[in-house]
Design a protein around this nucleic acid. Sequence first.
DNA 1: AGGTTTACTTGTGAATTGCAAGTGAATTTA
DNA 2: TAAATTCACTTGCAATTCACAAGTAAACCT
Lengths: 144, 144
Amino acid sequence: MAKRSSAKRRSGCPLNASVEMLGDRWSLLMIRDMMLRGSRTFKEFLASWEGIATNILADRLRRLEAYGIIEAQPDPKDGRKLIYLLTPKGIDLAPVLTEMVLWAARYEDTGNEPLVREILHDRRAFLARVRQRWEQNAKRPAIS
Amino acid sequence: MAKRSSAKRRSGCPLNASVEMLGDRWSLLMIRDMMLRGSRTFKEFLASWEGIATNILADRLRRLEAYGIIEAQPDPKDGRKLIYLLTPKGIDLAPVLTEMVLWAARYEDTGNEPLVREILHDRRAFLARVRQRWEQNAKRPAIS
DNA sequence: AGGTTTACTTGTGAATTGCAAGTGAATTTA
DNA sequence: TAAATTCACTTGCAATTCACAAGTAAACCT
């Protein structure tokens, strides 16, 4: 994948590039849903715990696609559906999400302790498992 | 530090907690400025490459303080100034920032290659250096 | 004492967000 | 095969947030 030019960015700092792509209230949660929950369709994203609005979801799907983080393909089994998948660029966000989860778990009173324990037990193994599960997920047929 | 209760959160997911604290266009850049550039006062933050507006900066300083990520103390040398410092919770965001920098550097055409190379060369050593520099920075007198 | 610096606050319009209610094509059901 | 339903959105609108410009009060410098 070609690197995106920095034409319209506020600055050339890599962190700024990340923030411009992911620095909002929904994008990272959507990537989490894809990575950990296997969400792939509009409807599945809507079912996320936090309750995103449909117009925002549509907008974020388009933005993430424009950034090359996700890609859409028609569902061969159901012409109404689009299946959204993480690209390699998207999957490579796993370490970012992982660090954010660990940080919050350390300082905030959050839930999902099994996940946190799994990460803490062996971070490398966890990341490998995420990638592996993703490979399988990308190939499985859509949920009826 | 006591863990913050999850009373008003959209969900109990640790990632959601992180996103609610840091998921905007400026917070992480401010933390970057503190961590890597040694920014400590209102004026120093204003000089960041990206150009934050004064009202947004004031708001974000208060939010980050409320979250326990930064803390403010009066400058003993200049009664007009407040010195903002990262708390341990704030410093522990270093791995998050690091992963975001590496991810962007990998897929986007960004600048600051020396930083990226330093991180890639030895991530652990880099993080240790950030912490160490921070210790010193927190003690130094304000820039005239 | 007068001017400057610092850290904000206060407007003001523009952009973004969230909610509710559509819409149209594809699929399932009767 | 006609009707109902599902799916992925779009549209309208009110409310919040944002960026930009200008102002303000306290502390400091001369």
